[in-house]
Every structure is written in C-alpha cells, then in structure tokens.
C-alpha cells in the first residue's frame, strides 16, 4: 500500500506470517510499516516487534545465551517454542548457523528444522538462511520451500548476494531482508535491484546493518534516521520498514570480559540500549539473543 499524503510518503506496509485464512498456519500475522511520522510522534504505526534469535548449531552462539537457555540450545524446536511461550518474544528469528561449518551439506536438515520450528511456533517466523555464498541457492530453496505459504521473512539479501534469496521469496511467497552496509544510497540501490528482480516493494524490509553499541552503532543509528527521513519526504525506494539485528552485540569486550556475576546483566543492558535506540531511530523489528532482553524491551514499549 503506497498511500501518498500531502506531507510525504507513508512507509509501506509489509505483512509477515500467514494465518489459515491467509494460506498459512500461523495464529496471527503481523503488519509492519504504515508510519507517517517519526517514531513516537503519533506516527500511525503499531508497536515495534521484538524478535528472539535462536540457531540450529549452538557452537556458533554467544556463551552467555547458551548458559541461560541450557539444554534448549540443543533442541531448536523447543527453543523456538520457549521463545514465544516462556520468553514472550513476538516472533522468532531462526539462524542456520550450521551452514557455517566447513563442508556443510545437510540440506535436508534445513528443511526439516524449518518445518519443526514452524510447528512449534504460532507466530510469524524470520529465517536467516545461509552463511556461505556457495550454499545460498540450495539453503534458501530448502527453507523457502519448507515454509511455503507461511510468509516468512527471509534473510539476508546483500548487493552482491541477493538472487538466491529473492528467487526463494518469489517462488514460495516470502518477504525479504535487504541488508546494506550503513549507507542510505546503498540501501536504496539494493531495493532497486530487488525490485528489478521482481520482488514486490511490499515484501522488502530494510536492514541498514547494525554495529554493536560502542562499536559502530552511532553510524547505524544515524543511517536509520536518514533512511526514515528520506522515506517520509517522498523517496519511495526507501519507504520500507526497517529491521535491526546487531549480531555482534554479545561478543563485544564489555560483555565477553565482564565479571562472571555481571555478565548476564551486561549482556542484557548492551542489547537493550542498542535495540531501544534502534526503535527510536525507526526500526519496526528489533532482534535480540538474550531471553531477558525480550522481557525488558516489551515492558519498555508498553504504555
């Protein structure tokens, strides 16, 4: 929906997830976007969504989260279920970290895990597919197919790596995360590339790339503000909702080297300040990894 108003543009609405009526199996679907103003200024949008990230191979996951979730880390579907039911996440972001290992070829597992996680969850799902360019086409095809009809949010498309994600999104009806390195023009170019590939504008979510707090976040914050201002003043190629996923947050020195007794508090504080600031800059979805951050963010966004 691209409603043109006098003052400028409305951010496009993007639907995530599909209920039975919409051809999927989710209990709810979400519509993000729709803003007509800056965040918290009566902008017309709903509450931002808080996603809890999980992964299929915990060897590549921050120790401070593994310690907290314990055995759940070894059962992706149960972890996903807990993310929604126990930890209160609005949605889950499933990372296929298994594709980081050398010589990965367990493509069947990608499809199976996607199906299991979908069965274990009731809300829309974000899937972060391949970590390795050579694996892209097969990984995205498998998870895309397994989630057919569910309107997944599939990631991640980059300027030199977008064809496989785009193809899977088009073939199986998903939305796409479009990531560019902290630059308004690069974000715009990638959206144009995706459009030319045939991805509808209302199925793109911009990821302007988030550096961790204290490690580049200031650039990410400002680029998000700039993208949003450009969109509101009429640039249709930037008028998409934004997602913020500062993947390095839990491996910064402050968290890694905190005294054992402080580590959890530090992890949560670091994620919280980053995610909340991203929301103030205009993010519709923030992704975090520590379950306790979810709770804090949701409390902060209430009222």
């Amino acid at each position: 929906m691209t409603e043109q108003s006098d003052e400028g543009l409305t951010i496009r609405e993007v639907r995530l997830g599909a209920t039975r009526e919409e051809g999927g199996t989710r209990e709810v679907s979400y519509v993000i976007g729709g803003e007509r103003d800056l965040p918290f200024s009566g902008d017309g949008a709903g509450r931002p969504l808080v996603a809890l990230e999980i992964c299929d191979d915990p060897r590549f996951w921050p120790p401070v989260v593994r310690d907290y979730v314990g055995d759940l880390a070894n059962d992706t579907a149960e972890w996903a279920r807990a993310a929604e039911r126990t930890y209160g996440a609005d949605l889950v972001r499933l990372n296929f970290t298994s594709t980081k290992q050398r010589g990965f070829d367990a493509f069947d597992a990608i499809a199976a895990t996607t199906e299991e996680v979908l069965a274990a969850t009731a809300r829309p799902l974000i899937v972060e597919g391949s970590n390795e360019p050579e694996l892209d086409s097969e990984v995205f095809r498998r998870c895309g197919e397994a989630g057919e009809g569910e309107r997944l949010l599939l990631g991640t498309a980059e300027a030199d790596r977008y064809r496989s994600v785009a193809a899977a999104a088009l073939a199986y009806g998903h939305a796409v995360i479009a990531q560019s390195p902290i630059d308004v023009n690069l974000a715009k170019q990638l959206n144009i590339l995706l459009r030319e590939t045939g991805v509808p504008q209302d199925r793109i979510v911009i990821d302007p790339y988030a550096g961790a707090l204290g490690y580049g976040f200031e650039y990410s914050y400002s680029v998000m503000e700039r993208i949003r201002l450009a969109a509101l003043s009429g640039d249709a190629d930037l008028a998409m909702p934004m997602i913020c996923a500062p993947t390095d947050t839990l491996s910064v020195r402050e968290v890694r080297e905190a005294a054992p007794a402080d580590q959890e508090a530090m992890a949560v504080a670091w994620e919280f300040y980053t995610a909340y600031a991203a929301i103030v800059a205009g993010a519709s979805i923030v992704c975090v990894r520590h379950p306790l951050t979810v709770e804090r963010l949701k409390a902060a966004l209430e009222g």
Partner: peptide, 29 residues
C-alpha cells in the same frame, strides 16, 4: 537520543551505567 540536557535517574546498576554512558558517547561523537 532525544534532546534531554539534564537527566535525573534513580541509582544505576553498573551494567546500565556502562551501556548508558556508551550510548551517550556514541550519539555525541
């Protein structure tokens, strides 16, 4: 982030303090 000049706060745990000061440093570079 949004224009306060003076912020009065209850006493802060060290994690909150460090994250808040880092955010302030980031935003004011």
């Amino acid at each position: 982030l949004k224009y306060a000049g003076i912020i009065v706060t209850p006493p802060l745990a060290s994690a909150s303090r460090e994250a808040a000061l880092t955010l302030r440093q980031n935003i004011y570079t």
